[in-house]
């Protein structure tokens, strides 16, 4: 839908352990501050989604990289795009993994499906043996 986005700045974090999860949350929290005009709810949703996905990357992807980008679309709307990439075993059945309550790791199975409901855009790309890439974008509503 938003093919014409422009990235103004970006930063990445390696996800290898629990402390890195905190680092990801802190970074998202910090980037979601003004001048980006996210409401408190949008900010909270984005940090929570990041926490879910970073934990997935650590547990199921056996670690990976996190990338945060400050993006602008064709309507000059600002947003944050977060990407989680791992070289882990990959997901054989994405549709199944997106269902509420489906888990292979003993969690609540709300990570992927829940994160999708918290943000404006969600995409996932994965194949067995090829790792997983999850991208989410939160657009600011106010101008």
């Amino acid at each position: 839908m938003n093919t014409t986005t422009k990235t103004t700045r970006s930063e990445s974090v390696l996800i290898r352990n629990q402390e890195d999860l905190q680092r990801v949350r802190a970074l998202v929290r910090q980037w979601a501050q003004p001048p980006l005009s996210f409401s408190t709810v949008e900010q909270t949703k984005l940090v929570t989604a990041a926490s879910e996905l970073a934990r997935n990357t650590l547990i199921y992807g056996l670690g990976g990289t996190f990338l945060i980008e400050d993006v602008t679309d064709a309507l000059a709307r600002r947003g944050l795009r977060l990407s989680f990439r791992d070289e882990g075993p990959g997901i054989p059945d994405i549709a199944k993994a997106m269902q509420d309550g489906y888990t292979t790791g003993g969690g609540m199975g709300l990570g992927l499906s829940g994160a999708k409901r918290l943000v404006s855009e969600f995409s996932i790309d994965s194949a067995p043996g090829k790792g997983t890439l999850v991208c989410i974008t939160q657009w600011t509503r106010r101008l």
Partner: peptide, 14 residues
């Protein structure tokens, strides 16, 4: 619990 946290938890399914 803060409002934003409550909204997020419900959306998450918790």
């Amino acid at each position: 619990m803060r409002p934003a946290v409550a909204i997020t938890m419900v959306e998450l399914g918790l």
